[in-house]
Computed example of a mutant assay.
Amino acid sequence: MVRIGAIVWQVSDLGRAREFWRGALGYEATPDNPDFLADPRGTGPRLHLDTGDRMHLDLWAEDAAEQRAEVARLVSLGARVVEDWTYPEDADFVVLADPDGNLFCVIDKSA
């Protein structure tokens, strides 16, 4: 089953937001991206700081098969796949909308 892997947080100033959320949560920047903050104890979701992406949840699946199954399961619960999304060629995510139109992504963590 998917889990909340990250919360994407829209901010206007990455540096200011990074310092604030690091102090507020005790999170640390991940080695691969200073705008991805993680709990050093390994609990809780990551916080992704982004100036362009609107706020949403990233749900993590362990691999592509689980991602496909979870997308189907979520659609059966009332979500819809956002068909008009422009994906990069190597996308590891599928964009869905919940019944109220709130966007979220299902990420293939193995990609």
Rank of each mutant, 00 (worst) to 15 (best):
M1I: 08
M1K: 08
V2Y: 05
R3H: 12
R3T: 13
I4W: 09
I4V: 15
I4K: 09
A6D: 12
I7A: 13
V8L: 13
W9G: 01
W9D: 00
Q10R: 13
Q10L: 03
S12D: 12
S12I: 02
D13G: 02
G15V: 00
G15A: 07
G15Y: 03
A17Q: 02
A17I: 01
A17S: 07
R18T: 02
E19F: 07
F20W: 00
R22C: 12
G23H: 05
A24H: 00
T30D: 14
T30V: 13
D32R: 15
P34D: 15
F36T: 14
L37D: 03
A38M: 14
A38R: 15
P40M: 11
R41W: 12
R41E: 15
R41H: 14
R41Y: 11
G42H: 10
P45D: 08
R46P: 08
R46S: 15
R46E: 15
L47F: 05
H48P: 06
T51C: 14
T51I: 14
T51D: 08
G52I: 02
D53F: 12
D53Y: 12
R54A: 11
M55G: 14
M55S: 15
E62M: 05
A64N: 03
E66R: 07
Q67C: 12
E70P: 08
A72V: 11
A72R: 13
V75L: 04
A79V: 03
A79F: 03
A79D: 05
A79R: 01
V81Q: 09
D84I: 02
D84L: 01
T86F: 02
Y87R: 03
A91E: 00
D92K: 00
V94T: 10
L96H: 04
A97W: 03
D98A: 08
P99H: 02
P99W: 04
D100S: 10
G101H: 01
N102Y: 13
L103S: 08
L103E: 14
C105T: 09
V106C: 03
D108T: 04
A111W: 14
